[in-house]
Amino acid sequence: MIHEVDDVLRALLRAEALDRTSVTVVFEAPTRDWAAKVNAPTVNLYLYDIREDLRRRERGLYNEYDDAGVVIARRRPPRYFKLSYLLTAWTKRPEDEHRLLSELLVCLLRYEALPSERLGGELGELGVPVPLSTALPPPEDRSFADVWSALGGELKPSLDVVVSVPFTASPRYAAGPPTEDGLQLHLDGFEPPPRPDPALAARSAEKPVYGRPDRELARRAMTRRSGPRDGGA
């Protein structure tokens, strides 16, 4: 999956941001030694972090059907992982680098997910969106200055590009054959309660239900109220 995301990002940037330039797109670690060897305009997409996107974690199992629509197996739902790329531009002049970063940012801001028409391989077969975010603030437990310090290079303007990729690798649980006569449950030592007597149930139905007024009592009360009062003519 990771190499497929690399291919989509490279193709997207080349087609929509670098189509009329000779800028190359690489996936190298921007260390001090690597930077010293760069002698041509370059865009670097360095994958510096991989972690699960817990907000997209789902529970339960997905059914797998055969041609007849019968469940033959079950799998766990896909788990999404965030691939974080450090996007930088490398030229001889800072002004050219800023111009390149501007073009790259405009290109990526058009999309909230990787374009479906550019997805291939397993990503294309899944048929699900692959979320994309650009230049969001870093998590609280990580800063870009720490990334550059770990690389041993000098701090440089960059864009943080994060792609949430679904991984479908999971155990496959085979399902049992479908039942033909329905499901019957038998418990050892358990006797079902006796069926209620119809005559008793009929008598119980005649009794007033809590919250429902007894019509006979209500009729008698109305008769007493409508009768002659003491001392009446």
Rank of each mutant, 00 (worst) to 15 (best):
R75D: 02
S133V: 12
R99Y: 08
E103M: 09
R74D: 03
R59M: 15
L109C: 06
E112P: 00
L61M: 15
Y85D: 02
T134S: 09
G152F: 07
Y65P: 05
I72G: 02
L126T: 04
E97T: 10
L159A: 03
T179G: 11
G152N: 03
P137S: 07
V162G: 00
R99I: 11
S170K: 06
V162Y: 03
R172N: 11
L61R: 14
S170V: 06
L104F: 02
A169C: 06
L108K: 04
P138I: 04
L105Y: 11
S149L: 12
R79C: 07
V106W: 12
G153K: 03
Y111C: 04
A73T: 02
G69W: 07
A135E: 10
P166L: 01
V70R: 11
R93Q: 10
G121F: 01
S116K: 15
P137L: 04
T91S: 12
P177S: 09
D160T: 10
P177G: 05
S158N: 13
Y80L: 06
S149A: 15
P171E: 03
R142G: 01
Y65S: 06
E97M: 10
T134G: 01
A135H: 11
P78W: 00
V161Q: 01
L105Q: 10
P94G: 12
A169R: 13
R76L: 15
I72Q: 09
R76C: 09
L126Q: 10
Y173K: 09
